[in-house]
Nucleic acid binder design. Sequence first.
DNA 1: CAACCGATTTTT
DNA 2: AAAATCGGTTGC
Length: 202
Amino acid sequence: MVKDGKLSKTAHKCLPSSFFARETITVAPELLGKYLLRRFEPGIELAFPLIEVEAYTQEDAACHAYKGVTSRCRVMFEKPGLAYVYFIYGMYHCLNVVTEPKGRGCAILIRGLGAPLSFSRESEDFKDKFLRDNHKLAGPGRLCRALNIDLTYNGISLTSSESPLQLIDLPEQEPLEPPLIRRTKRIGITKDADRLWRFLVG
DNA sequence: CAACCGATTTTT
DNA sequence: AAAATCGGTTGC
């Protein structure tokens, strides 16, 4: 519910694990328009709309899980709705949500976020400072740096209201229509680079 | 155990 | 176009 431009606490609704247990290529576009809720500290949280994602599946040569379970990608084979965080190029972290039933190695990379919504006066103040410090939330490495997401978040649940990181739905938000979703090749990969598995708003 | 590489970003 | 920078993966 939106009240005075802010969201009431009851408006949070975590997407269930069953939402992520479906085909990755189906889930990916449906994630656009959903929100990544980041609890920075108790009572301080911002909700960022997802505006760009990429799909990766086990059969896809560009996927970390392509050659099976390794120490890096093991969480991709675990429960749908978990966070898969990896470290790349010696300086960046990237955030994914694990998809498909447990045992499959699939995930969706979160590549871009929109301007955050706040839920309380305290969060509103925090948001002002956050926006001063972070002008762009485009790019998987940049958004993780902005949200302080590192390897300690690898494997945490994104489907629990207790989690510092959650994927949520806002009931008053209409689902995005396909015409509002653009579909392109994925960024920065060399193998299986022709798949149109990148989804963006706009 | 050493060498190579990468789902990026920033600067030249 | 190329550097920055390091854990994970691969191969010897």
